[in-house]
Amino acid sequence: MSLDKSESIQNIVTQSGRLAASGRSIKVKPLSKSRLTMRITMIALAALTIYGFFVFDYKNISPWQGTIDMLTNFKTMFLSPHLAHLTFWEGAYAIVVTLAMAVLTTLISAFLAFFLALFAAQNLSNHTVARSIQAVAAFIRSIPTVLWVLIFAISAGLGSVAAIVGMSFHSISYLTKAYAESFEEMDQGLIEALRATGAHWWHIVFQAVLPMSLTYLISWTFMRFEINFGVSVAMGAAAGAGGIGFDMFMASAFYHDLREVGAITYYILVVAFLLEMLSLRMKSAVRGKMI
């Protein structure tokens, strides 16, 4: 065998001159479906971006002057922040309110999403039921959170109730999808084995499904908590739900106080950094599955 190979290698060595002279052209990058799709996608995105810049409504604001303003504003905001319309402790309390909204939203959604996900997971539930829940969840996700909050504000009035219920709607559908996927990735053998022993469905859930997927559920929940913190800030501003977001909205839109906006940004940043550090470890379990 090794003799054959030596010969073939010897042949190649002596043939190489002849081959080079033949001058046939060799394709290196064949255009596969995947490559073609990527190329078309990138060209389309670039074209739409350029087209967008031509048709945007600039309202007589020069992009260059605005950008220069932006940089000077950043300097003022971040280098000389101050609080004028609220004290340091009022700011801290506002952050706690924002966090509390995120906590309630996350806990409500985690609790409900867990049960919904059991029925939405293909391996635990009936196919039709699973499909229907997934479809409803997809529909709910397709409506942005702020719209849910404003829809609830019609019946409950602007405030924390509308904000938390509206945020939970989106959050539940997000977690239902994430949890269901975690359940579907579980070892099918164990579930079947338990089924074969005649174990009750709820026993299977609490003895096998929950313990096996717990780390995933926790990391998804924490990831959502981080998102919900950002959403709470936004809802405070857009839906009058209170908390630091509302203070920021007032500082920006009513008092036009750049330096106070800067100070409030620092509050938000500190909490966001802390949350990110906390979740960094938890997230590694589900990294890259968000798509």
């Binding site: 945007f56 303003d69 504003n73 950002g230 920021m248 920006s252």
Partner: peptide, 21 residues
């Protein structure tokens, strides 16, 4: 990443007003 879009938009309102920018 840690400054939410809502916060960004309130920050940027000072520079670009109601324009698409």
């Amino acid at each position: 990443r840690n400054i939410d879009v809502a916060a960004w938009s309130m920050i940027l309102l000072f520079s670009f007003g109601q324009s698409a920018l």
